[in-house]
């Protein structure tokens, strides 16, 4: 290994803790899920109510299930099925997506819902 190699390795190892400190925020148990489809349309669904949501993307229909305070991709017409393998999400900030079908699923806590309340 050259000196430059060690320098790069050290940089990488310093970068990681910093990334975790900056972005690894996990909220408490989530309140609802925000689903964003290919056309940018958003669906916000409560985690307290069991239901199945079908959302159309460029490849076909992605099916998302909400059950017992958790949400997951049941199926998606993508090649990798990564979103399906991600399994159940239930914590605020948890996130998965079917990139090929352009559908994302994120659990949000109540604090993200509104920036302010008009009353």
């Amino acid at each position: 290994m050259t000196r430059a190699d060690y320098f790069v390795l050290a940089g990488a190892l310093l970068l990681l803790p910093w990334l975790y400190a900056s972005y690894w925020h996990r909220g408490g148990v989530g309140e609802e899920v925000r689903i964003v489809g290919a056309d940018g349309r958003e669906i916000l669904a409560s985690l307290r109510k069991d239901r199945e949501i079908r959302i159309e993307g460029p490849l076909g229909t992605s099916v998302i299930e909400i059950h017992d305070g958790k949400a997951r991709f049941v199926s998606s017409p993508c090649h990798g099925q990564l979103c399906v393998h991600a399994g159940w999400l239930h914590l605020g900030g948890e996130f998965t997506a079917c990139l090929p079908n352009r559908v994302s699923l994120a659990v949000v806590g109540p604090e993200l819902r509104y920036d302010t309340i008009n009353f």
Binding site: L15, L19, Y23, W24, H25, E94, F95, A97, S104
Partner: peptide, 15 residues
């Protein structure tokens, strides 16, 4: 594709 802030939560793991 996914202009969703929550995506940043994945960045540390990916990196």
């Amino acid at each position: 594709f996914i202009p969703h802030e929550a995506l940043f939560g994945l960045l540390p793991v990916l990196m």
